[in-house]
Nucleic acid binder design. Structure first.
Lengths: 165, 165
DNA sequence: CTCCGAAGTTGGAATTATTCTAAAGTAGAA
DNA sequence: TTCTACTTTAGAATAATTCCAACTTCGGAG
């Protein structure tokens, strides 16, 4: 009766989807893969491999960065997560939310945020209609300067836009 | 009368736009920058810094890869070109075509085509308006099955969508 | 026309994200 | 339990990008 300890079964539907994708592909559900999926499903911060590693290494001291890279690569190949590409900080960010939506990446502070936008749905329809493709996913990333970084840039006018930094 | 040798003035309107962007920012139009702008305007291949360097080093033996990176960085910051982010080969690709368009990637045959679409322009506007970001680049990729591969898939229903490539 | 300071270029070193590799560990079927 | 293929791991290797300090070039002031 008290055996009901921290249930190993996933609550988060996003996490469940990732684990199912691995199962469907006939891959093993190791502790490491479970932990990485759980972390991916738990955050909206679009983490890099290094950030995932940092977040999990206390709980799993033996975890290797290579395993994080391997697992992320596997999930991307399965189409279960998206790689958002370089946001200016030289590292690839990952997003477990594969529903069509816009990602905004700031080239200055390197933060990535989601932008709900109903124009996306319309773009989806038009792309499908005009191309004849069967659309299975999308990755819509905009790069730019967030409002805060724009203000910061204006305060150092001599630096101009073409800074060497 | 015969002094009218190979005119140094740009013919390509795309090239002219890039050079004008540099002028407007009060930056110098050096030979290197002209050459890089000319090359960017001449191709639809979404080149990387290395590819640009390779294409120009015969004509300008003293050209440095660092200069290519500097110039690309400058043009991106000016909003004159777009950085397409990582496309899976670990290098950043650049696109002098900043007209709104999406890339369509087929998960089966791996071809990538451009699709001009006025719905993109609207998305651009809404994203800029709703986010307050200064947009400097975008990578809009749709994944799916091209019409040909859809037909082929119907004949071999077992082929999975999640390709290992 | 000449000189000066700022802007730009250069090559090589430094940095760092990602991939590779070989050895050791583990899940799960028989 | 045993076997085998799949995984993980640590560290070395790779390669794109940035940094740096010296040198060159441009354009304006005198």
């Amino acid at each position: 009766m008290k055996g009901r300890v921290a249930s190993p079964t996933p609550q988060n539907p996003l996490e469940a989807r990732l684990l199912q994708a691995l199962r469907d592909a006939g891959l093993r559900l190791t502790v490491q893969r479970r932990a990485i999926c759980r972390y991916l499903a738990s955050t909206k911060s679009h983490p890099t491999a290094q950030q995932i590693y940092n977040a999990l290494k206390d709980e799993f001291p033996s975890l290797s960065l290579a395993t994080v890279y391997n697992t992320l690569d596997t999930l991307v190949r399965l189409g279960a997560i998206h790689a958002l590409g370089n946001t200016g900080d030289g590292a690839i960010h990952y997003d477990a939310d594969i529903e069509p939506h816009v990602n905004l990446a700031c080239l200055q502070c390197h933060r990535v945020v989601d932008l709900p936008c109903e124009a996306v749905a319309e773009l989806d329809r038009k792309v499908a209609a005009e191309s004849g493709y069967r659309i299975l996913g999308a990755r819509l990333v905009y790069y730019g300067l967030c409002p805060e970084c724009q203000r910061a840039a204006q305060q150092t006018p001599s630096v101009s836009v073409a800074a060497h930094h």
